Computed example of a mutant assay.
Amino acid sequence: MSGGVDSAVAAARAVDAGHDVVGVHLALSRMPGTLRTGSRGCCTIEDSMDAQRAANIIGIPYYVWDFSERFKLDVVDDFIAEYSAGRTPNPCMRCNERIKFAALLEKALALGFDAVATGHYASIVTDAAGNRELHRASAWAKDQSYVLGVLTTEQLAHAMFPLGATPSKAEVRAEAAERGFSVANKPDSHDICFIPDGDTRGWLAERVGTATGEILDREGNVLGTHEGAHAYTVGQRRGLSIGTPADDGKPRFVLEVRPKENTVVVGPKAALDIAEIAGSRFTWAGLPPEHPEQEWECEVQIRAHADPVPARAVVVSVADGRQELVITPDYPLNGVAPGQTAVVYVGTRVLGQATIDRTVSAVPVGTRAGGAVPVGPRG
């Protein structure tokens, strides 16, 4: 129970369904000032108090479990390491993967519970053979299946999402008000909870340090300098501080971050179009494709609120013995960075996900951006 309206209603519905329910709030920091508060947080002291008030109304036992050390190691330190390696991580994905459905679920099962129920908007469907599948929620605008794409088959077997069939968030808020929950109109949490002031660049500089490096164009020409490659993300436009304008007078965008050389590569917006993505850190949410080594049609989503894009996917073996999930969208994805998560869908079902290791630009180096041939949809 995060202290928000969704988890409060989910807990109440689980009780109504006849389950023996215990409310658990996760303490993710021993220093309250290091987590965002109010509408921008999700696991602060005030949130734990909101959760307890809801648990009291429902009439269930309530506990606060200290997962601060695990959160620091598996989410915060991972976030720093990924940025230091030139990737753009999604800490909410890591939190769902390693805290809520790994650490929390492990402890719950050890204590004799059958499942972890959360307020996520997603659905679990059981097929004719008894296999559990993760699907989108009925409310498309609030669907949160993307951030649950990291769940494995074993984790799905012990997961419950009581809000999955709810038509709208407004209905959940109305139900919360009827039940007398004080969080009925509490704003949704957002942004990174462990960066209190929202200054990701400054937060990283304190932990990674600063070092002057070069800003290059795609041909390797030096355009300017920066104070640390970790402060830049693919697709970024502002804050480049390049004195020399581009030949065409158009703005430049970050295309690549190279932490080993401490360089940042910039170029035209068109060069952000990506024709292929691939990752070796992939998992399946339920049964995998029957023949993953044979190309299959799917849809790919690269951000929580992005539209899915028709694509083809295949698992291939690479030189060092690893396997890689390669996804080719029907038309270019925009501004994709290594470290992001690509979630693969077949219809409404979440088939699996991959952390993106590499991307292939739709505009090769040396090609005039305006003359690029886009990759169009099939048929």
Rank of each mutant, 00 (worst) to 15 (best):
D217A: 05
V76E: 04
S182R: 15
R30N: 15
K142C: 01
H25Q: 07
G149I: 03
A275T: 10
L223V: 09
S48N: 06
A8R: 05
F101M: 14
S138V: 15
P32N: 11
H190V: 13
S189Q: 08
I274T: 11
H158L: 07
D199R: 09
L272Y: 10
D74L: 13
I80M: 09
W203M: 10
P251D: 06
V360S: 06
D217V: 04
F71G: 02
P329T: 12
G4V: 03
G18Y: 07
Q236Y: 11
H291Y: 12
L151H: 01
L35F: 14
V15E: 01
A275L: 01
V172C: 05
N90T: 02
C43I: 02
E290R: 08
V64W: 02
E206W: 00
D143L: 06
G279V: 08
G379L: 14
S68C: 11
C92Q: 05
I80C: 03
F161Y: 15
V147E: 00
D50N: 10
Q301I: 10
G366Q: 07
E297M: 03
V15R: 09
H25T: 05
Y146T: 01
D50R: 05
V64D: 08
V346H: 10
D114N: 14
R87H: 13
L156A: 05
V314R: 12
N56F: 03
T283E: 09
R218H: 08
A115L: 10
A81I: 11
L333I: 04
A275V: 04
A128C: 00
R258E: 14
G352F: 06
D197Q: 15
H226R: 08
H135D: 05
A129L: 07
H190R: 11
Q301F: 07
Y121C: 09
M31T: 11
T200R: 11
V314W: 08
A342P: 05
S68F: 12
S182K: 15
H25S: 12
H190Y: 15
H25W: 03
D50K: 04
G213H: 12
R179L: 15
E214H: 13
I45D: 13
A270E: 09
A102W: 10
A275E: 04
A81V: 08
L204E: 08
E46F: 04
V172Y: 02
Y63E: 01
G286R: 10
I60C: 08
G366H: 05
A10P: 00
I124V: 15
G249T: 02
E293P: 00
N96F: 12
F253T: 12
